[in-house]
Computed example of a mutant assay.
Amino acid sequence: MQTKLVIFDRDGTINQDRDDYVKSADEWIPMPGVLDAIARLNHAGWHVVVATNQSGLGRGLYDMAALNAMHAKMHKLLAAAGGRIDAVFYCPHSPDDHCNCRKPAPGLFEQIAERYGMELTRVPCVGDTLRDLQAGAAVGCTPHLVLTGKGEKLRGKPLPDDYPAGTLVHNDVSAFADWLLQQPEPASKTVGKAASKSGSRA
């Protein structure tokens, strides 16, 4: 049986985003209800991973020690809520680097597919921006938009035409978890075309 996997964006989806970038553990603040939502998914057998652009590294706004401290805080708070994130896949590059791992490019998702030895067809990917969903859709993921972070601006509005076909919209991660836990099992077993492998490093 294939791994039950769900892929989340980080800033604006799991934690509050900032116009000046989340640069420290103190600035990493979870969205309301998100820790319990991830824990509920875990308890139902879902493995949660994160795919996140962290161009603040490439821009020199923070260093690896700061990023590790943010994720240590995330893991600690999740553990206290009874949840866990299996792994964090991140792109450290700035847009000028023209890498394959900065979303909307699919490199991070290709790395996840390789790590788990599975195709990502119909694996849910959740984010608050178009590029999050474009990156997942490129490898066959089912796109889910949350109306938090940058997604807030679409609240009460129709989804723009440039969003991937079949995009589902949820108020937040808690609402997404409610939806996913109501789906028939196993939601991630369908196999499609193999995801392409990437040599890029995030």
Score class of each variant (00 low, 15 high):
A80T: 04
L159M: 08
E152W: 03
A138T: 05
T148G: 11
L57Y: 12
A138G: 09
A113F: 13
V123C: 15
R115L: 01
V123M: 14
A137S: 15
E27C: 01
G151V: 03
N53V: 07
H43W: 04
P143W: 04
R115C: 04
A137D: 12
A137R: 11
G33P: 07
G136Y: 06
D161T: 14
M64G: 00
E114G: 10
C91Y: 11
P143H: 08
W28A: 02
M70Q: 13
H93Q: 07
A135Q: 06
G127V: 08
G127L: 07
V126G: 03
G156I: 12
V49I: 02
R122E: 13
V123K: 12
G58P: 03
P30D: 12
L35D: 04
G166S: 03
M74K: 04
H71Q: 13
A39Y: 11
P124W: 10
R84V: 08
H75N: 13
T121R: 12
P92C: 13
G83Q: 07
D86R: 11
C141I: 01
A87I: 00
V50H: 03
E152S: 11
K73Q: 14
L67K: 03
W28H: 06
M31A: 02
G107L: 14
K153E: 13
L159V: 05
D132R: 06
D96C: 02
M118C: 10
A165K: 13
Q134A: 15
A105S: 05
